[in-house]
């Protein structure tokens, strides 16, 4: 990211929230919404402009689930581990995805294509085990089908 662009963006945000209580969290919200994560160079700049130590900013970022420190994947995989899905074999689906994509829970693949999240109850227990890729829902998923499902989204790029 260009140094200049970062400065202007942060300057406007800081200006907007100046002097207001709890401004750090509000500014971080806007950055998260805009970028999909909180880039380190922005945090460093923010620390300077708000005169808040970087350590405090990271305490806040890492305390709340909402904030991410790395860019989101292009496609978000959400595997349901609610009770029904869990009993119907969701753990084996997660293992298969981790194996195929070489990715950890809550992390993004090296090529940036997929982000894997484990979630609780997607609200369609009748279809368990369920997973979602972006807004597409897959029900009654079998471990053997995972590779095909991923390939479909992968090809779309």
């Amino acid at each position: 990211m260009e140094e200049k662009a970062v400065s202007i963006e942060i300057k406007n945000l800081v200006e907007k929230w100046k002097g207001k209580e709890g401004n750090l969290i509000m500014i971080l919200h806007e950055i998260q919404n805009h970028h999909g994560y909180v880039p380190r160079d922005i945090s460093l700049k923010l620390s300077e402009m708000l005169d808040v130590p970087l350590a405090r900013i990271y305490e806040v970022i890492t305390f709340y689930n909402y904030f991410k420190l790395s860019p989101p994947g292009k496609h978000r995989i959400s595997v349901c581990m609610g009770t029904a899905c869990y009993l119907k074999g969701a753990p084996s689906l997660i293992e298969e995805i981790k194996d195929l994509l070489d990715v950890e829970e809550g992390k993004t693949t090296k090529d940036g294509l997929f982000h894997l999240d484990v979630v609780r109850c997607l609200g369609c227990c009748g279809l368990s085990p369920v997973l979602m890729i972006d807004d597409k829902v897959y029900g009654k998923v079998k471990k053997a089908e995972i590779a095909d499902i991923l390939a479909k989204h992968g090809k779309e790029g």
Partner: peptide
């Protein structure tokens, strides 16, 4: 943080994952 005003160490993450670390 408080006595030395250095802020090299902080509590990062929360719950079972909480640990002491520099920022990032």
């Amino acid at each position: 943080q408080d006595n030395q005003d250095v802020w090299a160490l902080s509590f990062i993450e929360r719950g079972i994952k909480t640990h002491i670390s520099p920022a990032g």
